[in-house]
């Protein structure tokens, strides 16, 4: 279970404090999933940072009773001087997992070839994303955090991600944030809309979808 209770997040600006997340509540049980829809700037990424623990809430609590991943396919934590293999080792050490058995999977999924042992600075964007996704899959979590905007790639990459995440790991919980209502309809069993700092819950994905279509202003 992961639960957010009365979470607020405020950032200081030169024009005074700005509240991005305003008294947010939700709860997700093991094995379930939820989609969170929001327009640009609605606070989706901020919410992800709260959930991953990279930033602390201004007030309120996050209760984690299952292991929660770092944002899926997040490549920002790569050091460009390190090779793909170094980055795999690092992540494995942080989570206390032996990296050696994981090398074949990561090599196979990323299709990096010799570049797996070259510095990340020599990678293309696509290579970085594939490596980031493979590392996310290398460590097992009860709940995955997915920021849809981070998982960019061609159709084949999406297909392979889909297999790894939604087929091989369909027993896991996930929280998916996106601006794309169709993605939520495709993957999620429940949905909320993040709008003006509030998280609005809905009884069904369809209702969330309809509401979201009408907040275009």
């Amino acid at each position: 279970m992961i639960a957010i209770e009365n979470l607020c997040k405020t950032y200081d600006t030169r024009f005074g404090p700005r509240t991005i997340l305003d008294n947010i509540n939700f709860r997700l049980e093991r094995g379930r999933n939820i989609g969170i829809l929001g327009r640009n700037g609605a606070g989706k990424s901020t919410l992800i940072r709260m959930l991953s623990g990279a930033e602390r809430p201004t007030s309120g609590h996050i209760i984690r009773e299952m292991s929660v991943s770092w944002p899926l396919a997040f490549g920002g934590a790569f050091h460009t001087h390190l090779t793909g293999l170094d980055n795999l080792k690092f992540v494995c050490r942080v989570y206390g997992v032996d990296y050696k058995p994981l090398i074949p999977f990561v090599e196979d999924f990323t299709e990096l070839g010799i570049y797996f042992r070259e510095p990340v600075s020599s990678y293309s964007m696509g290579m970085v994303t594939r490596l980031a996704f493979a590392l996310s899959m290398a460590i097992e979590f009860d709940c995955f955090l997915i920021d849809e905007a981070m998982v960019v790639g061609d159709a084949r990459f999406h297909e392979r991600c889909h297999v790894e995440l939604f087929q091989k790991r369909k027993d896991r919980a996930f929280i998916l944030v996106t601006h794309d209502a169709n993605v939520i309809k495709l993957y999620c069993e429940s949905a909320c809309v993040l709008h003006k700092g509030k998280l609005v819950p809905f009884a069904s994905v369809d209702e969330a979808y309809d509401f979201y279509q009408h907040i275009d202003e």
Binding site: G53, A54, E55, V68, F74, A77, V91, V94
Partner: peptide, 9 residues
């Protein structure tokens, strides 16, 4: 700073 996404760090 990006490493803070790994909650143990």
């Amino acid at each position: 700073i990006a490493l803070l996404h790994h909650r143990n760090v």
